[in-house]
């Protein structure tokens, strides 16, 4: 960060690096709830996302739906981030992660240990325990967490090198419910990649996260449920780029009272 004047700062851009891999796009995209596989593929390409989240579910021997889905994802060509969505215990999450590592051939896991069904908020106690088990077993854990600073510290101690606090409950589209908390998290962990995961409903929400200095945004429903998912994916991609550029450029400090932008000196007296 370079200090130009009293209150002016600019920040040098840095790579979006997650566990040693660098990416151009700071948008991470979920693959669920699209109207069709073709629309998912169009939206994924339009978003510019280089990382797609996926899951594991029961496979029918007759339908083999998972095999078709996997071909589609491979054709898109993005890196996959398997999740442990729907797991309510450490045991379920760890076992799901182990199964995902084999199927997807990746040490990456978006670790979800859900604590409450209505809000889908993380069970942060189970999350830390599962993160410790998985990190010790060679996983590269992306924990879906809250903005709680102490939990964040525990997750880093457990071996996580990325944190993914929620903006709002999954699928709610509410945006950033606790801007103060997210800002505090950013300030506490300036060197840790932070990704807002969940609750983002509009490109402006994603831009706001990036303006706070977040490294990336992970979203799904806001694009999948849009009238035109590919167009919305493009809008999100642009918003995330704009938010990042704004953060780097050094936003002005807000103030309570008005301050004239047109010079006061030289104003004519016309009374």
């Amino acid at each position: 960060m370079t200090l130009l004047q009293d209150t002016r700062t600019v920040t040098q851009d840095s790579d979006f690096t997650l566990y040693g891999s660098s990416f151009r796009s700071r948008l991470m995209l979920g693959t669920s709830q699209y109207p069709s596989p073709a629309i998912l593929a169009d939206a994924a390409r339009a978003s510019g996302a280089e990382i797609l989240t996926v899951s594991l579910r029961r496979e029918s021997a007759r339908l083999k739906e998972g095999q078709d889905f996997w071909r589609l994802i491979r054709d898109i060509g993005a890196r996959v981030l398997p999740n442990t969505a729907g797991c309510y215990s450490v045991k379920e999450a760890v076992t799901t992660a182990q199964m995902a590592r084999e199927v997807f051939s990746t040490p990456w896991v978006k670790l979800e240990v859900i604590g409450e069904a209505d809000t889908l908020q993380p069970d942060v106690f189970g999350l830390v325990e599962a993160a410790r088990i998985l990190s010790a077993d060679g996983f590269e854990v992306f924990p879906y967490t809250t903005e709680d600073l102490v939990v964040a510290e525990r997750l880093l101690e457990a071996g996580c090198k990325v944190l993914m606090p929620w903006g709002a409950p999954i699928g709610s589209g509410k945006g950033l419910n606790n801007v103060f908390g997210l800002r505090a998290l950013r300030a506490h962990f300036p060197e840790i990649p932070l990704i807002v995961d969940a609750g983002v409903g509009l490109p402006s929400h994603a831009a706001a996260a990036m303006e706070l200095g977040y490294d990336g945004v992970l979203l799904n429903t806001a694009i999948a449920k849009a009238g035109d998912p590919a167009a919305m994916a493009r809008a999100f991609g642009q918003a995330i780029e704009a938010g990042r550029a704004a953060f780097l450029a050094g936003p002005m400090q807000p103030r309570d009272m008005a301050a004239p932008s047109t010079p006061v000196v030289g104003r004519a007296v016309l009374t």
Binding site: T31, T53, G66, W70, V103
Partner: peptide, 30 residues
């Protein structure tokens, strides 16, 4: 029965009456 069995161990893993087998595959996820 709730424990991951890697592909390489399936040949050596016996199945008994009443066992619970989970067979999972890639699927859409957020």
């Amino acid at each position: 029965n709730g424990e991951f069995v890697p592909a390489r161990l399936r040949e050596a893993t016996p199945v008994r009456d009443g066992d619970r087998i989970e067979i999972l595959a890639p699927r859409q996820g957020g």
